[in-house]
Amino acid sequence: MPENTAPATTANPAVQSALKAVEAQREAVKEFPGKAPGLVRALQTLGDAQRDAGDVPAAEASYREALEAGKDLELPTEVMANVRTSLATLLDFSGREAESLPYYEEAISNHEALGGENAEVAAQLRNNLAMTYKCMDKFALAEQHYLRSLETLENKRGRKSESVACVFNNLGSLYYAAGFPDQAKEMFEDGLQIRTEVLGERHRDVAQSLCNLATACHELKDNDAAQKHFEKSLTILESQLPQEARSYEAIGTDYVAMLEIIGEEGKAAALKKRMEKVLAAV
């Protein structure tokens, strides 16, 4: 069984504690091979601590060792599902999307087989996997996983939930990127409606949904609607400065660009001055 030889963030107390637990389990395995399930769990905990400490190579090594240690054991499905989930997300968020795919697929299969609350975990993982496929321009696969995620979350939580709204928003972004603005607009509208009902009209996520919807409307040449949605989005964010300064500037910049594209140079210039004044006062 290979040992984790990646450098550890030993100054971190959580990592130190987890390393001691792993070493204790390794010793136990030498004397009693049946103790290996404890080693798998200890390596998972160590990997989590190393990941939280920012030591990605060490965390990856711990997760891979855990998978190797559990390969020939009859472990509870959830134990291995959690390790695969951790490795998949670590690889994905480290910019190694293609490497994360098989671990996502296996983790999803494991969680779905467990059912119950694990079905929701699988749905969230499908959402992650869909994002990964979208980044790889595999739009059909991304759509498939988003729709499966949406179906599960609607069944478990009902339509009026933030998690469902998030998937609608992601579907809208997928359709927009794939060149289907009509479908994108429909998804953004559904997501906006849910977020407004669940979060209230002045929530930052509602502002983001309005921005997305504005972009789709502009693509469909409905620039009056696009301007209305952009203005409402900026009004929400302006009321939440300085916390939302970054979002306010980003959405405002998108709005300025749209105004310039449609020939509204005067409005664009006025908006720039307004934004500069508002942000300078933050």
Rank of each mutant, 00 (worst) to 15 (best):
N118R: 14
G252R: 13
I108Q: 00
E74A: 14
S239A: 15
G263P: 00
E162R: 12
L46Y: 08
L241P: 05
I194S: 02
A207Y: 00
G70T: 04
L220P: 05
E99P: 01
N4F: 03
I262M: 05
L125F: 14
L87A: 08
A119P: 11
E99W: 01
K30M: 00
D190T: 07
D205G: 07
K20C: 02
S109W: 09
Q193F: 05
Q50G: 05
T77N: 07
S233H: 09
H111Q: 10
A107K: 03
L43G: 08
Y104W: 00
E117I: 02
A24G: 05
F188T: 02
N110R: 14
L125M: 15
E68I: 15
A214T: 07
F230I: 12
R274D: 15
K30D: 12
E106T: 14
T45W: 06
K185T: 03
A18V: 00
D55W: 05
S94A: 07
A21Y: 06
E244I: 01
K160R: 11
S233Q: 11
Q50K: 04
E3T: 12
S100Y: 04
A270D: 13
L39G: 05
M1L: 09
N212S: 15
E117M: 06
C166A: 12
E65G: 01
L19D: 04
E264Y: 03
V56P: 03
N155D: 12
E238H: 05
Y176M: 11
T89C: 07
M187L: 00
V278K: 13
D190L: 11
G115W: 08
P102L: 03
T5L: 13
F32N: 14
P57L: 03
E260M: 10
P76K: 10
H229G: 04
Q240R: 10
L75D: 10
R157M: 09
T132C: 03
P7R: 15
I236Q: 05
Y146V: 10
D72H: 07
L153P: 15
V206E: 01
K267E: 14
E112S: 11
V29H: 01
G263Y: 02
Y63K: 07
M275I: 11
G70Y: 05
E112L: 15
D254L: 12
F93Y: 15
D222Y: 00
C217F: 06
E201N: 10
T152R: 07
G54L: 04
A98C: 00
R126T: 12
Q144M: 14
V15T: 01
E186R: 10
A268P: 06
Q243W: 00
Y176T: 01
A81N: 14
V40K: 09
A8C: 11
Q16Y: 05
A216S: 15
L87H: 09
V83S: 09
K228Y: 09
Q16D: 07
L150K: 10
E201S: 10
D224H: 03
S100G: 02
E60C: 02
E60W: 02
Y255C: 13
V79F: 07
A6L: 04
K221A: 10
F180Y: 14
I262Q: 02
E154V: 13
A142S: 13
A6D: 11
K277W: 06
V83W: 08
A11M: 07
V15Q: 01
D48T: 11
L213V: 02
L73D: 06
L259T: 02
D190I: 00
E117N: 10
K232R: 15
L259N: 01
N169W: 07
A59T: 06
E244W: 02
R96A: 04
L271S: 10
